[in-house]
């Protein structure tokens, strides 16, 4: 019981990060490996704003999200946009280059000591024999709410619909007069904002360190794979599923093979359903 609830809480954060990645993937068409760095930048900035500038946590979180959006937009226009017609492994390699530089700079600024933003929600409550810290509940609630809002945004606004069109078929979308450059900006801004929210809220509950970026990206990618590329809402279920599998694997195989079990589960899902659990469309080549 305890493990399941732990898994759900952790899973919603994975989902929030993955939702941002889905949006960005829709326009760039390659995994944005530096997405986890957005999470890291936001977590570190939130912590810095709260401990050094003595801002209240909510303002600190705003600083974190702003930093994350700025970082995402910078990468979008300094790196990805000029490369939009390059082969996809060039974009993939460039995102890895961005990871190397970002991480090195972050360690130079903040060292690699993990830190937690003080001033988060304290206390806990019990469900059956499970003890759930309130902070986890807050984390899960905020994540789910933000994912919900984003899903609505994508399906109800013109920008959202045109982004979906781009994700479905970029060339046709462009021919139909969809503003490609603007959509890139929106996708990176909103996607990085989601990563930013995840990073700042996460930093009030769990330790964040300057080296966590790639791990976070991997988890988000696993979520996307489980959920199937394309839908922001499905990502929530993918995230919860990953969280639960991770928690169960951690219980059945203490330590040791936890990561492997998650990967193995993902591989089994993929072999059985090459387009993800909820994947409707055929994965593009």
């Amino acid at each position: 019981m305890q493990e399941l609830l732990n898994g759900v809480a952790q899973g919603t954060v994975y989902a929030l990060i993955a939702a941002g990645l889905v949006l960005i993937f829709g326009v760039v068409r390659v995994p944005h490996f530096a997405h986890g760095e957005s999470v890291m930048v936001s977590g570190m900035m939130t912590c810095w704003a709260v401990t050094s500038l003595h801002l209240p946590v909510l303002l600190g979180a705003a600083v974190g999200v702003a930093a994350s959006v700025g970082y995402g937009l910078f990468l979008c226009f300094a790196v990805y946009w000029p490369m939009r017609n390059h082969p996809e492994w060039n974009l993939l390699a460039s995102s890895l280059g961005a990871v190397v530089i970002t991480q090195t700079a972050a360690i130079a600024i903040w060292t690699s000591t993990p830190r937690v933003t003080p001033g988060g929600v304290s206390g806990s409550f019990e469900i059956g024999d499970a003890i759930i810290p309130w902070s986890w509940a807050v984390l899960a609630a905020i994540s789910a709410a933000v994912i919900g809002a984003t899903a609505l945004l994508v399906s109800r606004t013109t920008a959202g619909v045109s982004m979906k069109a781009m994700a479905a078929d970029a060339e046709t979308a462009q021919l139909m007069g969809i503003p490609v450059r603007k959509n890139w900006a929106i996708a990176f801004a909103v996607g990085s904002a989601l990563a930013g929210v995840a990073g700042s809220v996460y930093s009030t509950v769990f330790p964040v360190s300057t080296t966590l970026g790639l791990d976070v990206t991997f988890s988000a990618l696993v979520v996307i794979i489980l959920a199937g590329i394309g839908s922001v809402a499905h990502v929530l279920w993918g995230g919860v599923l990953l969280g639960v599998v991770e928690a169960v694997a951690g219980t059945v195989f203490p330590g040791g093979y936890q990561d492997s079990m998650v990967f193995l589960f993902m591989l089994v899902v993929l072999v059985a359903r090459p387009n993800g659990l909820f994947g409707l469309e055929r994965a593009r080549d």
Partner: peptide, 15 residues
């Protein structure tokens, strides 16, 4: 009970 350096979650170990 194993863990990996830099882990953010110790829930399964604690459980």
């Amino acid at each position: 009970v194993d863990f990996e350096m830099g882990a953010t979650q110790f829930s399964s170990q604690i459980a």
